[in-house]
Simulated assay, not measured.
Amino acid sequence: MRILLVEDDRTIAAGLCYSLQAEGYQVEHCATCAGALEQVEAGGWDLLLLDLTLPDGSGYDICRRAKALGDTSVVFLTACDEEVSAVMGLDMGADDYVTKPFRLRELLSRIKSVLRRSGRGGGETSLTFGALTICPQRAQVRFAGRELALTALEYRLLLTFAAHPGQVLTRGQLLEGIWDVAGNFVNDNTLTVYIKRLREKLAAAGDEGRISTVRGLGYRMEGE
């Protein structure tokens, strides 16, 4: 599933891109209306996630153009004082809106609901790394056809690694990736324990060495 995120706040955008990729979505970010319109013209998007107020235009402009070109799903991200305007956006064809500040799980739930209604959410998207396969829609992990029994935190940690194969992830980035599942119960010390357990389960299944330590920087999941 391909999502175009249009958000001029780069801190928010970075967090959303990271979290959406960890859920298995392909995400492209634009910070301006002009850049987003170019991407919309190019096509191929399953969903547009649009900030309403942009430095060179409005999310309305992007929504209007997207709906003129096809039936791409649209979800608005709005500030509290823009809520009435967002409802107006629904009248021009937007599928939903979420008011800032929002919880990540709420946003993901809204996205999945919109994609289901549009008929785009029914297909299975798998992440494959050699004999290791992750199915985000079913929260299932298999190695050489055999299912791996992971806890929710271990699964979320693996999914975070899988969204960035070959990249070095800091401990802070990994904590952000599993924060939504564990809340305040995961800290820097317990992260070490979960990484150790995940490595042990992968090794027991025959996938030893998948997650490596990059001394002084963080950890990396090897892709194939």
Results as ranks from 00 to 15, higher is better:
residue 100 K to W: 07
residue 198 L to N: 06
residue 155 Y to W: 15
residue 63 C to M: 11
residue 96 D to H: 02
residue 63 C to Y: 09
residue 171 R to T: 15
residue 111 I to W: 09
residue 134 I to C: 08
residue 133 T to Q: 12
residue 82 E to Y: 01
residue 33 C to H: 01
residue 149 A to E: 14
residue 211 I to N: 06
residue 163 A to S: 07
residue 173 Q to A: 11
residue 212 S to T: 04
residue 21 Q to S: 13
residue 154 E to Q: 06
residue 206 G to H: 03
residue 174 L to T: 01
residue 65 R to Y: 12
residue 125 T to E: 15
residue 204 A to K: 09
residue 152 A to S: 03
residue 112 K to A: 15
residue 68 A to P: 01
residue 59 G to M: 14
residue 69 L to H: 07
residue 97 Y to N: 14
residue 12 I to N: 06
residue 108 L to V: 03
residue 2 R to Y: 01
residue 82 E to P: 03
residue 115 L to S: 10
residue 198 L to H: 05
residue 59 G to W: 14
residue 217 L to C: 11
residue 118 S to L: 04
residue 139 A to E: 02
residue 57 G to I: 08
residue 3 I to T: 12
residue 186 V to Y: 06
residue 145 G to R: 10
residue 161 F to P: 03
residue 125 T to R: 13
residue 214 V to D: 08
residue 100 K to G: 07
residue 117 R to I: 10
residue 49 L to D: 12
residue 201 K to Q: 10
residue 126 S to K: 15
residue 144 A to L: 11
residue 73 S to L: 09
residue 69 L to I: 08
residue 29 H to I: 10
residue 125 T to S: 14
residue 168 V to Q: 09
residue 114 V to L: 07
residue 87 V to W: 08
residue 197 R to H: 03
residue 93 G to D: 00
residue 41 E to G: 08
residue 181 V to I: 01
residue 209 G to C: 11
residue 160 T to M: 05
residue 55 P to D: 09
residue 47 L to Q: 12
residue 127 L to D: 04
residue 112 K to V: 12
residue 85 S to E: 02
residue 141 V to A: 05
residue 114 V to N: 11
residue 36 A to D: 01
residue 218 G to H: 03
residue 171 R to N: 15
residue 174 L to M: 02
residue 99 T to I: 15
residue 8 D to K: 02
residue 45 W to K: 11
residue 79 A to P: 00
residue 77 L to F: 07
residue 42 A to Y: 01
residue 38 E to G: 09
residue 21 Q to A: 14
residue 26 Q to P: 03
residue 150 L to Y: 07
residue 140 Q to E: 15
residue 173 Q to R: 13
residue 191 L to Y: 06
residue 152 A to D: 04
residue 103 R to E: 06
residue 195 I to Q: 08
residue 15 G to M: 02
residue 100 K to H: 09
residue 6 V to T: 13
residue 95 D to R: 00
residue 110 R to A: 01
residue 166 G to I: 08
residue 200 E to C: 05
residue 25 Y to D: 03
residue 96 D to L: 00
residue 217 L to Q: 14
residue 6 V to G: 13
residue 136 P to M: 01
residue 157 L to D: 01
residue 150 L to R: 04
residue 51 D to M: 06
residue 24 G to V: 00
residue 180 D to G: 13
residue 219 Y to R: 12
residue 25 Y to F: 08
residue 126 S to D: 09
residue 125 T to P: 11
residue 183 G to M: 04
